[in-house]
Structures are given as C-alpha cells and as structure tokens.
C-alpha cells in the first residue's frame, strides 16, 4: 500500500491533536511549549502533503513550512527566555502560578 494524501493528513491531525492535548494539560511551561511545537509541526505536515499531492505542485507549501520552522525557532527562543525570567522571579515554572500580570 503506497502512502497517499489522507495518510499524511491523518498524521498531521494526530500530531496536532497530541500537541494540543499536551499544551492544554501540561502545567509545566516547557511542556506547554513542546505541545505548541508539536501543533506547529502537525500543520507543517499538512503544508508539505498538500504540496506533494497537488495537481500542479506549488512551491508555496514548502516556503510556508520553512517560514513556520524559522518562526517556531524564534518563538522557542523568546518563550524559553520568558520561562527563565519567570523562574528567576518565582522559583517555579508552573504556568498556573504565573498569573501576576492579571492585575
């Protein structure tokens, strides 16, 4: 059985679902970030799959994927910086406790 488009779409959806579940359930900030990465990559799989199986292959799918990877890297750098700052302040990286910006 040769893999076809639905298989990839299913893989993307599963990755996204796992990522979403991880982000929503983890109280550890790093875990949340990891969940977000998973969701992004699930989306990337969709982009690349549609690029590969389109009737007239389009370059946009790959370009979008590269863009998402770059932005995810930048986002990870910034988010980890924030997590470090939160830890320096609160001696904890539990997101449910990081609620001082509320007021």
């Amino acid at each position: 059985m040769t893999p076809a488009l639905p298989h990839f779409l299913l893989l993307g959806a599963v990755l996204f679902g796992f990522g979403c579940f991880t982000a929503v359930t983890r109280s550890n900030a790093v875990g949340v970030l990891m969940g977000i990465e998973l969701m992004l990559n699930g989306a990337n799989v969709n982009f690349v799959a549609f690029h590969r199986y389109a009737a007239t292959p389009l370059l946009e799918g790959q370009i979008f994927t590269l863009l998402v990877i770059v932005i995810a890297a930048a986002e990870a750098a910034v988010a980890l910086g924030i997590v470090l700052a939160v830890y320096a302040n609160q001696r904890s990286i539990d997101v449910s406790e990081a609620d001082t910006l509320r007021d």
């Binding site: 982000a23 929503v24 109280s27 997101v95 449910s96 990081a98 609620d99 509320r102």
Partner: peptide, 12 residues
C-alpha cells in the same frame, strides 16, 4: 484570571 491553562482551554 491570569491562568494560562484556562486561556488555552477557552481558545481550544
């Protein structure tokens, strides 16, 4: 509430 988890629940 400042509770990130809840924000996420709501968004999802």
């Amino acid at each position: 509430s400042g509770d990130l988890m809840r924000y996420l629940y709501v968004a999802v």
